[in-house]
Amino acid sequence: MGAPDAASAVRDGIRCMLMRGGTSKGAYFVATDLPSDPATRDDLLLRIMGSPDPRQIDGIGGAHPLTSKVAIVSPSTAEGIDVDYLFLQVGVDTATVGDAQTCGNLLAGIGPFAVERGLVPATGERTTVRIRLLNTGDIATAQFPTVDGRPEYDGDAVIDGVPGTASSIELEVGGGPDKPLLPTGSPTDDVDGNTVTLIDNGMPVVLLRAEDFGVAGTESPSALEDDAVLAERLERIRLEAGPRMGLGDVAEQTVPKLILLSPPRDGGAISTRAFIPARVHTAIGVLMAASVAAALRIPGAVGHDIAGPLAGEETAVEHPSGTFPSRVRVTRDADGTWRATSFSLRTARKLFDGTVFPRPRR
């Protein structure tokens, strides 16, 4: 079935699978089921998700950035890669569709979705899927259980921020040889008069000391979101950091993320509050955590001096709803360039599979 035109999409719908990936939720599509023209596609996705509307009452979005996400999957033409994954962040109360970032949480569902749609065959009791992240150029490997040729979602794995248990999905994400961990080459930079670390281990983030902004770093997400003075300071930093990280003008983008760091309280390595960028994450994104964990291993980087003990590659990253175990391997080239590969255990679950109907017009 090819991509529908506007009239038939409203009348006949579009094939869609809603999945929870990690601590996020999104609509998953095969690329050929959507228009190839980006502007036409984005308009359609806004009407599917119900944006712009803070409630997204006339669409399938969940009225929060963590539940207003889209994953588009297609067979890959790259050698040694099974599928390509394009992530789109759909605005909730704004008519925006951003592609400047990827999503490590929805990444957890890409492998199972590819098997569900017949893009990749299952291989026995465990299936491996190689994934190219089109937004960033990173390459991921996902391993997950399969039974009778289909993904197995039931299991005993637990991740903070998600109730219950599910089968484990092992993810490995690494940047290419031309992608340094520190975009400016320095462990710290001065941005708008603040000492920050600009780092990208799969997600471009700005790391800041919570105490520099008059907060403890233990506040609830809602309390931080209600602090207008803090929000203004952070946005100034974000707008200046974007070009320095090679992202250009980020005024209409959702990257870079900003993460306040403070000493650990619950036995972890560091405590975090992640701005994404206006709302505060109720947990932490997979690749945000990977960027934090990598920074803690770089002398002089923000957070390095307040981190708890780091044992091997595992880092317990504390967040508002628990702790995320982020495993990273950090190396330094002979010329001093820092690089990293991240490993994580996630879960995902198919919520529904069927046909979604966009509203006729915005």
Rank of each mutant, 00 (worst) to 15 (best):
D33P: 04
A3L: 08
D200Y: 02
P145R: 13
V317D: 05
R55N: 12
S24E: 09
T197L: 10
D305S: 14
E211I: 11
G98T: 10
M203L: 14
G155T: 05
E252V: 09
G98F: 03
T323F: 03
A348R: 05
I81W: 04
G217A: 08
D249R: 06
L182T: 09
P4K: 11
A334V: 09
D84L: 03
P277H: 04
S262I: 06
L171I: 14
L351E: 15
M19H: 12
R236F: 00
S326W: 03
M203S: 15
R117H: 09
M49T: 04
T67R: 09
D227M: 04
A307S: 15
A228K: 13
D58L: 13
G109T: 04
P183F: 06
A100V: 04
G176I: 07
C16M: 15
R41M: 14
A228E: 15
V205T: 13
V83L: 01
G303T: 08
N201M: 12
E318S: 05
I72Q: 07
G164D: 08
I306K: 08
S344H: 06
S8N: 10
L44A: 12
N201S: 15
G104W: 01
S291C: 13
A114Y: 01
V173L: 15
V317H: 07
S168A: 15
D212W: 06
R20K: 10
A241V: 05
T195S: 12
G354Q: 00
V83F: 03
A290L: 08
I284P: 05
G248D: 01
A295C: 10
A142P: 08
A78G: 00
A311N: 14
V205R: 03
L261F: 05
A216F: 01
P180N: 07
L260A: 08
T218N: 14
L287W: 01
G308K: 00
G176C: 10
P52R: 05
V115L: 09
G267A: 06
R126F: 15
A223R: 05
T315A: 14
G242V: 02
T127Y: 03
G268I: 02
P204G: 08
D154M: 11
T195P: 00
G109M: 09
G312E: 05
G91Y: 00
N201T: 14
L133R: 02
A63L: 02
D212P: 02
G137I: 06
L119K: 02
D335A: 10
V215C: 09
P65A: 03
H281P: 04
P38W: 02
P4Y: 07
D82P: 09
R20W: 08
I110E: 01
P180R: 02
S8A: 13
P52G: 01
